[in-house]
C-alpha cells in the first residue's frame, strides 16, 4: 500500500493511494491536486534520526575519481529541512550551483539494535523518495558535507508516498531518474549502490539504535545539474513514486 500524509480542509490526514486518487481514513476520496502534501511520515515521540549517504553509487564515485569508500560517508539532517511533494524549495540569489539528488529512502519499521545483515529487511518498514538538494557554493571541508549545504529549510523534499516494504520485491533493483522541466538529466539504478540497504541497517544499528520512523537516505547516482528558480524537478524511483518540486527565488 502507498501511504501519504496530507493537509486537506485545514486538517492533517493520513491517506492511501486508491486508483490515482487519495482515500482518507474516513473513506472520503480526494484528488491529488486538491491537497497540500506533507512528508509521508507519521509523527514520532522523539525527533527522528535522518541519516544520509554521500558517494554511495559506484558511477558517482568513479566520476569524481574517488576510490570507492571503505565505509559509508554519512551525515545527519534535522527534521526541519524536510518538506512535502509539490512544495517549493528556495534558492538563495547569490549562489552559482544548486543541484538535486534523487535518493531512495529507507524508513525504519521497528527498533533496530545490532541487527545482522541477513535479518536487516525485517527492520525496514517501507520506502520513499527524497530529493536531497545541495548548494555547492556553501561546501566547506569541516564535517563535509556541512549543514549549511545539507540542512537548509525546504531543501529536502520527501514523498509523495511511503510504500510498504512488503510491496517492494527488490529495493536493490529500482530505476531512478530525474527530470528538469521534463528533460531527463539523471538516471541510475539502486543496484549500483556501494553500500546496500541491508549493509546500512547492519552498519548503523551496530552503534546507534534505530527507531520506527527513522530515515536513511541512500545517496544518489551521477548526473546532477544546476537548478534555477522556476525549474520543476521530478525525482522518480520505479515502484516508489515521482516526487515533484519547484525551485523558487529566496
Amino acid at each position: 500500500m502507498k501511504h501519504a500524509r496530507i493537509l486537506f480542509e485545514n486538517a492533517v490526514h493520513d491517506a492511501v493511494e486508491d486508483g490515482g486518487r487519495l482515500r482518507l481514513a474516513d473513506g472520503r476520496q480526494v484528488e491529488a491536486d486538491a491537497v497540500s502534501w506533507l512528508p509521508p511520515l507519521k509523527p514520532v515521540p522523539r525527533p527522528r534520526t535522518i541519516l544520509a549517504l554521500g558517494l554511495n553509487y559506484a558511477d558517482h564515485a568513479k566520476e569524481l575519481e574517488f576510490k570507492a569508500p571503505e565505509e559509508p560517508l554519512v551525515f545527519v539532517k534535522g527534521e526541519s529541512t524536510l518538506t512535502g511533494h509539490r512544495q517549493l524549495t528556495y534558492r538563495p540569489s547569490e549562489v552559482q550551483f544548486m543541484h538535486y539528488e534523487c535518493e531512495l529512502v529507507i524508513v525504519v519499521g521497528k527498533t533496530a539494535k545490532k541487527v545482522r545483515r541477513d535479518d536487516a529487511y525485517d527492520f525496514i518498514g517501507g520506502y520513499t523518495v527524497a530529493n536531497d538538494y545541495a548548494i555547492r557554493d556553501y561546501l566547506e571541508n569541516w564535517y563535509r558535507p556541512n549543514l549549511r549545504v545539507k540542512n537548509r529549510d525546504t531543501c529536502t523534499p520527501i514523498g509523495p508516498w511511503l510504500v510498504d516494504a512488503k510491496d517492494v520485491a527488490d529495493p536493490m533493483a529500482l530505476a531512478l531518474s530525474t527530470t528538469v522541466n521534463g528533460k531527463l538529466t539523471q538516471s541510475g539504478n539502486t543496484k549500483d549502490m556501494i553500500f546496500d540497504a541491508p549493509f546500512l541497517i547492519e552498519y548503523f544499528s551496530a552503534f546507534m539504535t534505530l527507531q520506527p520512523g527513522d530515515l536513511i537516505l541512500t545517496g544518489t547516482p551521477d548526473g546532477v545539474v544546476d537548478c534555477r528558480p522556476g525549474d520543476v524537478i521530478v525525482t522518480e524511483i520505479a515502484q516508489i513514486g515521482a516526487l515533484v518540486n519547484t525551485i523558487a527565488a529566496a
Binding site: 566547506e140 571541508n141 556541512n146
Partner: peptide, 20 residues
C-alpha cells in the same frame, strides 16, 4: 589539506535522539 581554509559558517553536528 583536507581543510584548506578555516571554516566560515558555524560547523554543526547533530546529536541524534538515541544519544540522549
Amino acid at each position: 589539506p583536507p581543510y584548506k581554509a578555516p571554516p566560515k559558517a558555524p560547523v554543526l553536528y547533530v546529536k541524534t535522539a538515541n544519544t540522549w
